[in-house]
Design a protein around this nucleic acid. Structure first.
Lengths: 349, 349
DNA sequence: CAAATTCTGAGGTGCGCAACTCAAAAACTG
DNA sequence: CAGTTTTTGAGTTGCGCACCTCAGAATTTG
């Protein structure tokens, strides 16, 4: 079963091309691999044969012959909230999957909030790496480190959080302003007909992704839902304790609170605060990132919607982008587009 | 750049395994390929070396050596609504991508509603195909045809619409009851505080996916939103004209209509009907499948939410599942899970 | 027209593996 | 212990390609 039958389907080989073009294998090879020393007329003949036969070099054989392999470094945050833990797991599984493609992933962990530490890792990248993927921090030294790597021909992809001004090859992650707008849209519609105040909690306003989400959220909510008033964001440092405290004081100071948007992590803190105040079912709460915790809160009806990104997709996408860049293969662009997922209780995976 | 360095990373080869195990290459090969004629003691020695070195056969080299290739048939509906057109395009792009993996896709078109025709195609499958993917119809003869193929060792994956009772290898598509529940959830929340009637339009109640969505929709709406009354579904045959007519008469007969759920295609008909009645902004309309048309309706504020599935993901997933099955590779399960996408105006791709 | 230059053909090697043969060695049998 | 069977070693071939050499052919130049 599944045996042989190569000739049946007739994938054209370089030898076929050479025969059809009436040249030798060596010349055909020179043409397809863009080596010089071939007359234009001959090149045209070979290319005609290529397109006539629909010849496409077998990438497996090519990689085998070139005997090349790639090594990538993933730099992930060490202070692990649930989402980052998921991402770490997915990177590990991606490594497994990539090994099969003759590519290898190493992972290094640095403190999320420590831009200097991240920059140091990038600056001291060991030789031998063909690419880097990292959760970037938008900081001058990080940006410089990324540009340096780019200058050295080492592609960098930013993961989850971008540094648009740096010469990174690619950003793998969601459109954060759009995510914020989406949250606002849901918030506004879920609160239809109610007036009141909407609280916002962010991890840190100096995290680019959080700031962008906030921007989008405010934009849509103030413009399209004038019955609702958005409070200034308070910082929870992506930490459950601090977020609990912040939420509790928010609840006390704002009796008219009808909605809560958590831009970052720390959702367990919010759940605890709402429960203590007995308002877990009544306040419309929108959170980010589907994790075991937020999933539970959603199923219980505490969280009303989760805006999320798929860590598995992101890990694989980062790897694919790096690999495709290094080996000159092309990729399917819309396979690498990370969507803004909306999860309600009924469409949970 | 990107050159060589194979040995640096040290992917172990079979030869390494043989040397470490103190056996010949031939014996190592016998063990890893489960050929017999090797003593248990020797097998153990080789396997120890395999795990010690972390040896994993290079699948590219293996496929090259086996010189095997696969051929799959995709059976798609010919009566093309927008979504099916998208799916067709994505299958074509997948074919392109698969060619690189030494696998080939042929596409055949049959009428969506003609179960007999579909069954005939499956029954008369040409030899040489290693697998089939099809938008299935839940019909006895189709089911029998699928089971027959399964008996002949030809894997069948159902695409978009399933036949759970048949021995298909895999279903690539969304959980349709859950999609219906998701639509109901959104409908209920978007209509918070309003009372009235919700109309439902389906392509055909004999299409399994439509019936399932309907079931989920009714279930949630009646149970959780008692202020809303769901009308019996009317059929639009996934056709713009018929759907226009159905919607128009619905609008006339139901002055209290506040929501509209279209389970299938024909959304252009709905848009026209709503516009003619001047109710395009007022009625909450939830539709399925993100296409150029529904996208436009969503941006205009006519459609309030789109429940969708990603045709590109589905096409690639079907191909990956078939390929992995045929070549005995394993796949990443959650990469093959098709999610229920929710699109609002703000999170459109 | 000869010399210099540019092209081209023929051939080889190796990548890691599958699949095979054949002979030799080791392990069992009676 | 001879005879049989099972296990192992050594080797070959080919998959499609990349990359290399070298000699000979075709073309251009002086």
């Amino acid at each position: 079963m599944g045996a042989g039958e190569a000739g049946l389907i007739g994938r054209a080989t370089l030898e076929d091309v050479a025969r059809i073009a009436g040249v030798s294998l060596a010349t055909a090879d020179r043409v397809v691999n863009r080596r010089d020393g071939v007359r234009d007329k001959t090149i045209a003949r070979v290319e005609a044969a290529v397109s006539k036969l629909g010849y496409r070099p077998d990438p497996a054989a090519a990689r085998l012959a070139r005997n090349q392999s790639f090594r990538f470094l993933f730099v992930l945050p060490s202070g692990a909230n649930s989402f980052m833990t998921l991402l770490g797991e997915q990177v590990a599984r991606t490594a497994d999957w990539l090994a099969v493609q003759r590519a290898f992933i190493d992972v290094e962990y640095v403190d999320v909030f420590d831009a200097e530490a991240l920059a140091r890792v990038l600056e001291n990248l060991l030789p031998g790496y063909h690419g880097v993927a990292t959760i970037a921090l938008d900081h001058p030294r990080v940006r410089a480190a990324i540009d340096d790597l780019a200058d050295r021909g080492i592609p960098v992809v930013t993961l989850v959080s971008d540094v648009p001004s740096a010469r990174r090859l690619h950003y793998v992650g969601i459109d954060n302003p759009a995510a914020g707008r989406t949250a606002a849209n849901l918030m506004g519609r879920f609160l239809r007909g109610r007036q009141g105040v909407v609280g916002v909690i962010a991890g840190s306003l100096s995290l680019r992704d959080h700031a962008e989400r906030l921007y989008g959220f405010n934009q849509v909510l103030t413009r399209e839902f004038p019955d609702l008033v958005v409070l200034p964001a308070v910082e929870g440092r992506d930490d459950n304790e601090q977020t609990l405290a912040a939420t509790t004081s928010l609840l006390q100071q704002q009796p008219g609170l009808v909605g809560l948007y958590n831009v970052g992590a720390g959702n367990r803190g919010i759940a605890a605060a709402l429960q203590q105040a007995g308002r877990d079912q009544d306040i419309v709460w929108i959170a980010h990132e589907l994790t075991p915790h937020t999933r539970r809160f959603l199923l219980h009806g505490d969280v009303d919607a989760i805006i999320s990104q798929n860590p598995g997709h992101e890990a694989r996408s980062a790897a694919r982008v790096l690999l495709a860049h290094c080996s000159g293969e092309k990729l399917v662009p819309d396979q690498e587009r990370i969507g803004i997922d909306i999860f309600l209780r009924d469409n949970l995976p």
